[in-house]
């Protein structure tokens, strides 16, 4: 009976499942955070207004071209292949024996970075032009405008997309089993390899993946609501009060 097998598999292997899930979450979380930072930086660089002439124009154009290539390359090739190329390639080409987990985090980060760069760029472009103009009109330069006005709005706007990326990463870390990273899929495969109960073992993994993505989604929704700010405001009966209030 399947159900009895499931109970048996869990009771015998739960530490392994948990370790696998932990590794999956670790790689996905770190990869998403690093990827978001990469994406944010690239998105910011790619939206710097290009001057009409001068050396700065040439440099910016060159940098933009390089970044565009990076984005196209990592969006245009499967992560499973990237993992193989980076892990075995680095060993072959440079004689570096990369730590598997490090390689995994690296692959997920740069992959996420490529997607996030476009999400951030879209987020910046979608901010109303009036916000930029108002900031410029009070004398802010580009950096001040981005830091104080645009970026806070962009971050709030791209949070759902970032969460989406996190959920994708939780699932897609499973491809890293090709470089023997002991994440949930790899662990499940070894468990199933021992007991020959493939359906039951992977059913457990399936439920675990689902629980992880569900919890992450809920947490992100909570943060989104928090960032929206309070629904109501207090009218200050006595403005002196307001002055003291920060």
């Amino acid at each position: 009976m399947s159900f009895e097998w499931i109970v048996k598999i869990i009771s015998e292997n739960w530490p392994m499942f948990l370790r696998g899930a932990g590794m999956t979450l670790f790689i996905a979380l770190l990869g998403t955070i690093l990827g978001a930072i990469i994406g944010l930086l690239i998105g910011l660089i790619r939206t710097i207004p290009v001057p009409e002439r001068g050396a700065k124009r040439a440099i910016l154009k060159a940098v933009n071209a390089i970044l565009a290539t990076y984005i196209e390359f990592f969006r245009g090739t499967p992560m499973i292949v990237q993992a193989m190329v980076i892990y075995y390639g680095s060993a072959l080409a440079f004689g570096v024996d990369m730590d598997r987990i490090l390689a995994a985090v690296f692959v997920v980060s740069i992959n996420t970075g490529a997607y996030m760069a476009e999400i951030v760029r879209g987020g910046i472009i979608s901010i109303d032009k009036g916000q930029f103009e108002a900031a410029h009109a009070i004398g802010m330069n580009h950096v001040q405008t981005m830091m104080n006005v645009v970026l806070p709005q962009v971050i709030r706007n791209i949070l759902p997309a970032t969460g989406n990326q996190f959920v994708i990463n939780i699932k897609d870390t499973s491809v890293l089993n090709v470089i023997s990273v002991t994440e949930l899929y790899f662990t499940t495969k070894s468990i199933a390899g021992n007991n020959f109960r493939y359906f039951e073992s992977f059913f457990v993994a399936c439920v675990m993946y689902f629980i992880m993505t569900l919890i992450v989604t809920k947490i992100l929704r909570y943060f989104e609501r928090k960032l929206e700010g309070p629904d109501n405001y207090a009218v200050m009966a006595n403005p002196v009060q307001a002055e003291g209030k920060k």
Binding site: D128, E133, H136, G139, N148, V149, Q153, R156
Partner: peptide, 24 residues
């Protein structure tokens, strides 16, 4: 131009208040 612009106040047709800041 940044030093110059702070000497001029601008009020827009579409208000353009900073959406991520409260009134104060």
């Amino acid at each position: 131009i940044f030093t110059y612009r702070r000497k001029l106040g601008m009020v827009f047709q579409q208000f353009n208040l900073f959406n991520n800041h409260n009134v104060l």
